[in-house]
């Protein structure tokens, strides 16, 4: 469904993402993990059209989307959420989700119905009348998810939707994401919460210093010495093995 080929991004002398290849198949939940500063969000921003790539190409269902604007990519069925939540602060939760729903309808009533439907799936029906600026962190994360889902995506890019949540909230949102996948939406996510990564993803990619260093099922990744060293430093893998 999504194919990233040899994508590179340089900021001046810094190569943030260096010839990354990856693919996400329809119906999968794929995670992208890696230490802070590895280039995960940069890669996401390029996939969603927010940053231009220096090299490489990105395909969505076989069509090249490199160089397209985010709103065009959204129309093709791929939408991202933001790591730092970006609510429409002056609007209510309902109005926020309706903006997403308007992506595919011109009709106010239809948009409202769609928004209410999505709110039900995400579990924020009781928050619909509240101003988006009065939501808690967990509420804002859900709002990001709800707005994106209201655009009827085929592929959702989730950038750390669990950061800052407590364990109960994480369990809830993991269930929500699984529920979204079951409705036929493919999911590609960046995540730091390992419990959620292990629990959710069919496959993971590991990014470190802008390069892909490993790929496989979460269990394979967790046992991969290269990955352990990327997170814990040189020699960590052999020390752990020696224990």
């Amino acid at each position: 469904m999504l194919e990233v080929r040899g994508v590179t991004k340089r900021f001046g002398g810094l190569t943030a993402v260096s010839s990354v290849d990856l693919a996400v198949a329809e119906g999968e939940i794929v995670s992208l993990i890696g230490p802070n500063g590895a280039g995960k969000t940069t890669l996401f921003a390029m996939i969603a059209g927010f940053l231009k790539l220096n090299e490489g190409d990105i395909f969505l269902n076989g069509n090249s989307i490199a160089g397209m604007k985010p709103h065009q990519i959204c129309k093709f069925g791929m939408v991202r959420t933001f790591q730092i939540t970006q609510p429409f602060a002056g609007l209510t939760t309902l109005q926020n989700i309706m903006v997403g729903a308007y992506a595919h309808t011109n009709d106010r009533m239809q948009a409202q119905q769609k928004a209410e439907q999505v709110a039900d799936i995400i579990g924020m029906t009781s928050l619909l009348g509240l101003g988006a600026d009065s939501l808690t962190v967990a509420g804002r994360k859900r709002l990001e998810l709800a707005r994106a889902l209201a655009t009827n995506p085929k592929l959702l890019l989730l950038d750390e939707v669990m950061a800052g949540l407590n364990p109960t909230e994480i369990d809830e949102i993991v269930a929500v994401i699984k529920g979204i996948r079951d409705t036929g939406v493919t999911i590609f996510l960046i995540e730091h919460v390992m419990k959620a990564v292990m629990n959710l993803s069919d496959r993971s990619y590991v990014l470190n210093d802008g390069k892909l260093i490993a790929t496989g099922t979460p269990a394979e990744i967790a046992a991969n010495p290269v990955v352990i060293e990327a997170y814990l430093g040189h020699g960590a893998a052999s020390e752990m093995a020696g224990e």
Binding site: A89, G90, Y102
Partner: peptide, 23 residues
């Protein structure tokens, strides 16, 4: 109207508006 909602979305957060398919 939808157009009005899109303008308000742009006012509140242009980047998020663009991400949600608004030209």
């Amino acid at each position: 109207s939808r157009f009005g909602a899109q303008l308000v979305a742009i006012r509140e957060n242009e980047e998020a508006a663009e991400a949600l398919g608004i030209n």
